[in-house]
Nucleic acid binder design. Structure first.
Lengths: 116, 116
DNA sequence: TGTTCATATAAGTCATGACTGAAATAGTGG
DNA sequence: CCACTATTTCAGTCATGACTTATATGAACA
């Protein structure tokens, strides 16, 4: 299952939104999501498994609780995939900013970039 | 169908990759994709329809040809959704850069940001 | 006008993934 | 050790979306 498929499901997206702000135990996620979407606790657990199995979340065991947290790698991959489209909504100065932000050391000068 | 679902399909993702560099007629897309994935022309046409219907592509009619081009809006929406996770892979200076890049006029100073 | 490209639509099949209720696993505290 | 709580796993159902082949649409041109 591709990262985009994982995020295609609104329940999983919402779970990740909850986890964006703080780590949460499975039970807390299950009650929030269960209430919001009207689905059962096992359904939520299955979504958590998908998130785990695909690297979107990590778990730390705490007694009988499982604390879920965002694992950013696949999200960052998606961010990288979007790079090729940023030119459609980012102006030239923004693009330079982005280059710098990403730590590039030198930029290839294109003809029309040359001074005057 | 949510934007992430649209990108979940590898064929559609590849079509968008082709369109990232240049506009292309449906036929050219169909032969490239058909060869790469081993699917029929109607299959590709159906994917193009999904991309159109969901705002990922625009068409301009040119005689009997249809020229497809990227429509960036939904991609930008996804980019915006990712904002809440950028803190996981972006350092503080990068974050400032991003703020500036996005045109914010003022940043709320948090306690630990204060000088000294 | 009739044939030929370029493309889209239609109808039907098939695989898959998102649920459900039931049951298993495993800490914790009396 | 037993019961209770937290969570996962299992097995089965159902909806949906990604194909297929066949067919329709419609511009171009001889």
């Amino acid at each position: 299952m591709h990262a985009f498929d994982i995020l295609g499901d609104p329940v999983r997206r919402r779970i990740l939104e909850l986890l964006a702000d703080a780590e949460l135990p499975a039970g807390s996620i299950a009650s929030t999501i269960g209430a919001e979407f009207g689905i059962s606790q096992p359904a939520v657990s299955q979504h958590l498994r998908v998130l785990r199995d695909n690297g979107f979340a990590t778990v730390t065991v705490d007694g009988t609780r499982r604390l879920y947290a965002v694992a950013p790698a696949p999200l960052q991959e998606i961010d990288a995939w979007l790079d090729r489209y940023r030119k459609f909504w980012t102006n030239r100065l923004d693009a330079l900013d982005t280059e710098l932000r990403r730590g590039r050391r030198a930029a290839q000068r294109t003809p029309e970039d040359g001074p005057k």
